[in-house]
Design a binder for these strands. Sequence first.
DNA 1: CTGTTAGCGCCTTCAC
DNA 2: GTGAAGGCGCTAACAG
Lengths: 345, 345
Amino acid sequence: MSDKATIYDIAKKLNISAATVSRALNDHPKTSNKTKILVQETALELGYEQNKLALALKSGRSNTIGVIVPRIDINFFGSIIRGIEDELYPRGYHIIICQTHDNEQKEIQNINALLNAQVDGIITSITKNTKDVSIFERILDKNTPLIFVDRKLNLKGASSVTLDDFKGAYQATQHLINQGCNRITHLTVIGYQSVGIYKDRLEGYTQALKDNDIPFDADLILDIENDINGGKKAGQKILNFKDRPDGIFSSSDFMILGAIKEIKANGLKIPEDIAVIGFSNEPFTKFMENPISSVDQCALEMGKLAAKVFLDQIIDPKLLKVEKNVILAPKLKIRQSSSKKTPAN
Amino acid sequence: MSDKATIYDIAKKLNISAATVSRALNDHPKTSNKTKILVQETALELGYEQNKLALALKSGRSNTIGVIVPRIDINFFGSIIRGIEDELYPRGYHIIICQTHDNEQKEIQNINALLNAQVDGIITSITKNTKDVSIFERILDKNTPLIFVDRKLNLKGASSVTLDDFKGAYQATQHLINQGCNRITHLTVIGYQSVGIYKDRLEGYTQALKDNDIPFDADLILDIENDINGGKKAGQKILNFKDRPDGIFSSSDFMILGAIKEIKANGLKIPEDIAVIGFSNEPFTKFMENPISSVDQCALEMGKLAAKVFLDQIIDPKLLKVEKNVILAPKLKIRQSSSKKTPAN
DNA sequence: CTGTTAGCGCCTTCAC
DNA sequence: GTGAAGGCGCTAACAG
C-alpha cells in the first residue's frame, strides 16, 4: 500500500486500457461519462496520484522554475522569492531555490544544474561580480525564459524587472534638499563591478544636486564596505570634514545605520544636525527608536512581476524571445531621520 | 543547436549503442577506456547534458527535497532554508520551496504537490493551526523521510530538529532574576493551538521562578498578538499594574519591541526601571540604539541539522523509519535592554 | 468512444 | 567489452 498506484493498476482493475484511464483522468472530451466516473472512483480507491515526473519527461515541461539569488536569508531576496511563489504557486509551478553567495562559479553551477533539471524558466539576481555572459546565453539558447530581478545583465532575449534606482536616489536626494540640506554626502558601495544599481544611485544623486544648483563635490562621495562598520568609518570622515555636511544619502541601510551610531556617539543630533536617508527599507529601519528614512525597493512586487513576465513568455511561444524590461518606481519612506520639520513614521 | 542532445545522438555519431554511451558516461567498470574517452569527447562536443528528469523517472529518486514553511520572507525561516541549502546543495540535491501562510489547507496542498513531484524527502515547519495528522502520515506511508524543524508534530516515524524552548525561556528568566528582577511578566502569543513552542517557553519561565522561590502570579502572563501593537497594549497593562513589574520575558521580539516603545513613551527607563528580553534574536534587536537582549534560535544550525538527518535517513534504508529527534540548545544574547550592571552588545 | 502503438531519455538486466 | 530489449509512468497519434 505504501507504493504508488499507476494508471496501469487502474486499467487492470477495470479491464480497460491505460490510455483510456489517462483520458478519463484528464477529462478528455471523447470519453464516456460512465468510464470517467468509474476511473475516478477506482483512482480514489487505489490512492492513485499522477506522477509529475513522468508527465514532465513526456511533455518536456517540468512545471518547475529555478530561482537563483545571492542569499536567501536576506530579507530583500526572501521577499522577492515570496512574490514569485505567491504568483506561481496557484498556476501549478514549483520553485527550486539556489544561492550563489555572490560567487560566480556557484552561479554557473546553479544554472547548469537547473538546466539539467529541465526547469521551465529561470529568474535570477546576478552576483556582484558576474562577468561571464555566456552561461546566460546558454539558458536562452535552450529556449528557456530568463528573467533578471533587481541585479541584471543587458542581454538580448533576456527580460528584467528592476527598480528605477536613479529615480529612487534622485527623490531621496531631493527630499534632503527640501529639508534644507545643501551639503549632502553620498555613501556608495565598493566592490560591485557588475551591478549597475550603485552607479545608477550615484547618478540620481548627482542629477538632483545639479537640478537644484548645488555644486557637486567629489570628496563627498564615500566608497565603503556595505555594513555597519563601513558606515561607522564613513561617519568619522563626515564628522572630520572641515565644512561639515548636513545630509547623507546612503545606498544602503546598513551603512547609514553605522554612520548614525557614529554621529550620535559624537553628540550630534539626527536629523537636526545631519539629516539622513538610506536605501532598501530594511525591516529594522522602521523599528528603530528614531526610525530611519529609506527608499523602498518593492521586493514583493518585483518578485510578482518577474513571475508574470515568465508566465507571459511561457504561455505565448512568440513572446519567448521577446524581452520585456519592467522598471518599478521606488517608494520613499520618510521617517524621523530626515524630517527636520514634521516627524513622521 | 538549441535543443538537447541525448545519449542516442552520441551513440549514432559514434556508431555504438546507447547502452554503451550510458555506461561510458557513468564510468562503468566494464567499459574500455578508449570508448569512455571517445564518448566523453563527443558528449562535450555535442553539448550533451544528462536529463535529470529521465533519470529520476527511471530511478524513482528525484534528488529533490521539499521544504515547506509558513512564510519564506521571515528571517527565521529564510535562515533555516539557507542552512538546508548549504548542506544539501553540495550533495546534489535541489530544494523546492513552498509556503503555507499558516493555512492548513495550503499545507495539505503543498504536501500533495510535493509527493506528486516525487520529492525524496520533506522538511517542514507546521502551520500554527495544523490539526490533521493524516496528511503527514501519508508522507511516511510513501516511505518518504519527514523531518520537522522548529514547529513539530509528534508522529511515530517522523524526525525533528527543534530548539529547547523550555531551556531558552528558563535561561532568559534566570538571567532577569540575576539582574535583580523579582516581579517578571511573561508575554506569550495567542492563537497557536498546535505549536508547542509557546507552551514550552511559558513552562521554562515558570520553572525558573519556582527554582528561585519567586511566587508565580497568573496575572503576570499576558496573552497577546504577536506584533508590535500587541506589545504596546501589553506595555500599557504593565504600566498600570499597581505593583509594577521590573522585568519582562517575551516570547517574541516584536511583542517586546512594542512594549519597549510604550514603556519609554511613558518616561520609564530600560533596563533601569524594567529589564526586558525577547525571543528569536531578530536582526533588528541588535541594531537598535539600545540593543534588545534575546534568545537566539540558531536557525541556520537547525536547517543544517535537518538536512543532515534527512541525509542519514536516505543513505541507510534501515534508518528510514527510525525517527531522530535533535534538540538544540538556544543561545542567550545579552544586550543593553537587560543589563542593569554592565552594558554589552 | 476505446485499444494499440510508440516514445519522452535514461539505465539495467541479459545475452553474446 | 558491447548490443538488444525492456521499462520507469504517462500521453498523443492512429486505428478501429
